[in-house]
Amino acid sequence: MTTVRQLLDQKGRNIWSIHPDATVFDAVAKMADKDIGSLVVMEGEELVGIITERDYARNVVLKGKTSPATPVRDIMERHVVIAQPEQSVDQCMAVMSEKRVRHLPVFEGNKPIGIVSIGDLVKSIIGDQKFVIVQLEQYIHGERAIVDG
């Protein structure tokens, strides 16, 4: 079973953050520049929230606010669900489904070490399933060779 630590080792440990006093415009620009869907909101070394593209769409665009005039703290999610590096990909998928989130910052103690998205988890699960299928096919073909021989 693949762990979050193994997944981060494969995909990289970049974790992009923004200050809660930054504007939503700056947050969206940073997400676009880094080609990511979320930023952790950090005040110094402390995690205070997360902002996602979904937060922007629902809390700025649909409410008639302007992104240059709205601080991140006004729309960020304050109750951040996090993952631990030793959790399995399956456990994280279950948490994401239950909590209805698409991004999990990964913390080791109080230190952020990466972030995983639902896309990262799905890709990992599909990769694990493909590996199992190949192994099963090799086993089946190997057994046939013995039976046929």
Rank of each mutant, 00 (worst) to 15 (best):
residue 54 R to H: 08
residue 54 R to G: 06
residue 55 D to S: 03
residue 55 D to P: 05
residue 55 D to N: 05
residue 56 Y to N: 07
residue 57 A to C: 09
residue 58 R to K: 14
residue 59 N to M: 09
residue 59 N to T: 00
residue 60 V to C: 04
residue 61 V to D: 00
residue 61 V to G: 03
residue 62 L to H: 02
residue 62 L to I: 01
residue 62 L to D: 06
residue 63 K to I: 04
residue 63 K to S: 01
residue 63 K to P: 06
residue 64 G to T: 06
residue 64 G to M: 02
residue 65 K to H: 08
residue 65 K to E: 08
residue 66 T to K: 09
residue 66 T to S: 15
residue 67 S to N: 10
residue 67 S to I: 06
residue 67 S to K: 12
residue 68 P to Y: 12
residue 68 P to F: 09
residue 68 P to A: 07
residue 69 A to E: 13
residue 69 A to T: 14
residue 70 T to L: 05
residue 72 V to K: 05
residue 72 V to N: 08
residue 73 R to N: 09
residue 73 R to P: 07
residue 74 D to G: 02
residue 74 D to W: 13
residue 74 D to A: 15
residue 76 M to Q: 10
residue 77 E to P: 00
residue 77 E to S: 15
residue 78 R to S: 14
residue 78 R to Q: 13
residue 79 H to C: 07
residue 80 V to F: 12
residue 80 V to G: 09
residue 80 V to D: 10
residue 81 V to S: 12
residue 81 V to C: 03
residue 82 I to D: 04
residue 84 Q to C: 03
residue 84 Q to N: 13
residue 84 Q to I: 10
residue 84 Q to E: 15
residue 84 Q to H: 15
residue 88 S to P: 03
residue 89 V to N: 11
residue 90 D to E: 01
residue 90 D to G: 12
residue 91 Q to R: 15
residue 91 Q to I: 00
residue 92 C to P: 05
residue 92 C to A: 10
residue 92 C to V: 04
residue 93 M to G: 06
residue 93 M to E: 11
residue 94 A to S: 02
residue 94 A to E: 15
residue 94 A to T: 09
residue 95 V to N: 00
residue 96 M to R: 00
residue 96 M to V: 06
residue 96 M to D: 09
residue 97 S to A: 14
residue 97 S to H: 10
residue 97 S to Y: 07
residue 98 E to N: 09
residue 98 E to V: 01
residue 98 E to T: 11
residue 99 K to G: 02
residue 99 K to C: 08
residue 99 K to Q: 12
residue 100 R to G: 00
residue 101 V to W: 03
residue 101 V to L: 02
residue 101 V to N: 04
residue 101 V to M: 01
residue 102 R to W: 04
residue 103 H to P: 08
residue 104 L to Q: 05
residue 104 L to G: 02
residue 104 L to Y: 01
residue 105 P to S: 11
residue 106 V to K: 05
residue 106 V to L: 01
residue 106 V to A: 08
residue 107 F to N: 04
residue 107 F to H: 01
residue 108 E to Q: 13
residue 110 N to M: 07
residue 110 N to V: 05
residue 110 N to T: 12
residue 112 P to S: 06
residue 113 I to A: 05
residue 113 I to L: 01
residue 114 G to V: 03
residue 114 G to Q: 01
residue 115 I to L: 11
residue 118 I to G: 09
residue 118 I to F: 01
residue 118 I to Q: 12
residue 119 G to R: 12
residue 120 D to S: 11
residue 120 D to H: 10
residue 120 D to F: 06
residue 121 L to K: 07
residue 121 L to M: 04
residue 122 V to C: 09
residue 122 V to P: 08
residue 122 V to A: 12
residue 122 V to D: 00
residue 123 K to D: 15
residue 123 K to S: 13
